[in-house]
Design a protein around this nucleic acid. Structure first.
Length: 230
DNA sequence: ACCACTAATTGGGATGAACT
DNA sequence: AGTTCATCCCAATTAGTGGT
C-alpha cells in the first residue's frame, strides 16, 4: 500500500544540507526506525541504543539525529505548515496539492460530500494491532499510533462494523469482508520483509502492558506511525 | 460546556439472481 | 448478452450518553 512516514524526506524542508553529509536512509531503514520508535518510547531506558539495534546499518547517533529532524517536521505540522502524517496517501488521492515543499488541501475535495474510502487490508490489520495494544475503546490512540490514515471517528465506525460482524449470525451466508480478518498475520503486512530472519524474542511494549514479538532482524508487528513526545 | 465514545441511521457501491 | 432489482456491505454522519 501507500504508506507514508514522517521521516520521509519527500516533504521535509529543513534538513537537506545535513542529509548530504550522512549515509542515506533507505525506505526499509525508515520503516524499521518508525517501528522501533513505536515500541521504545521516551520512558524506555537506553532508548536510542534499542532503536538503533532494530535499524539495520544505523548507529545510535544517526537514529537520534533522525529523530531530531522528525521533531522539526512535526513542529511544522503542528504549526499548520505541513499536513498530518498520512498525507502522502492523500496526495495520491488528489486531495492535497503540493506547492513547493508544502502541501495544501484541495478545495474541490472539501466542497464535495466525502464518499467512503475503503479500508485496505493493511489498515484493518493495523487496526487489529492497535486493538491489541490500546484495547477496545481507545480509538484515538489506535488512530494516532496505528491507523494514521483514519480519524478516531473512522476507527470507531470501523470497529463498530467489525464487532457487529463478529457477533452476527449466519456467517456462512455472508459475502467475504475485510472484517473477517480477526488475527494479525505479520506475513500479510506489506511492511514485513519476506527475506527477514524470523528467529524471534519477546520484548515488552512500553505503556501497553503486552508483550510484542520481535524478530532478530524484524518486528512481529510494525505500526507505521509513532508519537514524538516532548 | 467540552470532549470522547457508542448506537443508530444514511447514502452509495458492489454483487448476484431473475428476467427479457 | 444486457438490464433490472434486491440484497449486502461499508464509510460517513448524526444523535445520544457519560465523564471531566
Amino acid at each position: 500500500m501507500q504508506t507514508s512516514s514522517p521521516s520521509s524526506r519527500v516533504y521535509s524542508s529543513n534538513h537537506t544540507m545535513q542529509e548530504s553529509k550522512r549515509s542515506k536512509w533507505t525506505k526499509e531503514q525508515n520503516k524499521w526506525f518508525e517501528s522501533a520508535l513505536a515500541i521504545f518510547d521516551t520512558e524506555t531506558p537506553d532508548r536510542w541504543s534499542n532503536v538503533a539495534a532494530l535499524v539495520p546499518g544505523k548507529s545510535e547517533f544517526e537514529v537520534r539525529e533522525q529523530y531530531e529532524e522528525l521533531k522539526a517536521d512535526i513542529n511544522d505540522i503542528e504549526a499548520g505548515l505541513l499536513e498530518v502524517p498520512g498525507y502522502i496517501n492523500f496526495l495520491q488521492d488528489h486531495r492535497f496539492k503540493p506547492f513547493g515543499n508544502r502541501l495544501y488541501r484541495s478545495r474541490s475535495f472539501d466542497s464535495e460530500r466525502r464518499k467512503g474510502i475503503p479500508w485496505t487490508e493493511d489498515e484493518h490489520r493495523r487496526f487489529l494491532m492497535g486493538l491489541q495494544v490500546h484495547g477496545k475503546g481507545d480509538w484515538r490512540n489506535i488512530s494516532r499510533n496505528f491507523v494514521v490514515t483514519k480519524t478516531p471517528t473512522q476507527v470507531a465506525s470501523h470497529a463498530q462494523k467489525y464487532y457487529a460482524r463478529q457477533h452476527s449470525e449466519g456467517k456462512e451466508k455472508r459475502r467475504p469482508s475485510i472484517h473477517d480478518i480477526t488475527t494479525i498475520d505479520p506475513s500479510q503486512t506489506d511492511n514485513f520483509s519476506d527475506d527477514m530472519d524470523r528467529s524471534s524474542s519477546l520484548i515488552n511494549a512500553p505503556n501497553s502492558g503486552i508483550n510484542v514479538q520481535v524478530y532478530s532482524s524484524g518486528l512481529h508487528f510494525q505500526p507505521t506511525q509513532y508519537q514524538i513526545y516532548g
